[in-house]
Amino acid sequence: MASAGGDVTRRLQQELMGIMMGADPGASAFPNDDNLFEWTATLCGSEDTAYEGLTYKLKLVFPDTYPYKAPLITFETPCFHPNVDEHGNICLDILKEKWSSAFSVSTILQSLRSLLADPNNESPLNTEAAQLWADQDKYRQVCKQKYQEGAGEA
């Protein structure tokens, strides 16, 4: 039987293969340099949402206990969103108390895209974004503005 470490590597390689073959236009992910345990993902905002046309970079760090433990995922591109804080930390149940080995990088990326379109405004990390959500025109404006400011910083 392969060691646990070997299994994690195999699992991540399989997931990477799946993502590359799946070619999802809305989300992609690839390991950084030669480190299979640290990936950079790119998420495109869905059409007809405030995030349409915006592209976000995220950092995924896999623990050596993956997939028993969830990867640590943070936004690298500043993201104005009720469930993302100013450091890029994300509040999403499947990355916390609902995490199980049944999830994969590709399901996480899908869930993050859904989260962008459909925030959980009941427990916001960014209260400003949560309050503004009801006014979608204004929200769209602020979202674009913050995105451009963020792009300027980067």
């Binding site: 804080d85 100013e86 450091h87 930390n89 427990s123 916001p124 990390l125 960014n126 209260t127 400003e128 949560a130 309050q131």
Partner: peptide, 22 residues
């Protein structure tokens, strides 16, 4: 997590509250 309050409506206060809660 701080619940949204009327005081948070001003954006600067809102950001501060968000940072605290985070």
């Amino acid at each position: 997590t701080a619940p949204p309050t009327a005081a948070d409506a001003a954006s600067s206060t809102g950001e501060a509250a968000a940072a605290d809660s985070s």
